[in-house]
Amino acid sequence: MSDTPVAEMSFEQAMAELQEVVGKLEAGDVPLEASITLYERGAELKAHCEAKLKAAQEKVEAITMGENGAPTGTTPVEGL
């Protein structure tokens, strides 16, 4: 288990660790106390991954440019 707080993890990191946690638990050779800790960690990771997946939202913008071609901001793009 890494020490990175779950909230700071990328989806990929969290998913990888979740897989590891499940693997360990399934192997069944973890002491009971440790397995409870593992389970809690797993649940936290799962919630984090889920949040990342649920947060998937489309937002399309186009870069707007000034006279010199440098970007000045964005405008929403609709209807594509």
Binding site: V22, L25, G28, S35, I36, Y39
Partner: peptide
């Protein structure tokens, strides 16, 4: 996949107990 992981997690933890 996450659901599956979750299921396995619960099962494994339940089995441990």
């Amino acid at each position: 996949r996450l659901d599956e992981m979750d299921g396995r997690l619960r099962r494994a933890a339940g089995q441990a107990v």
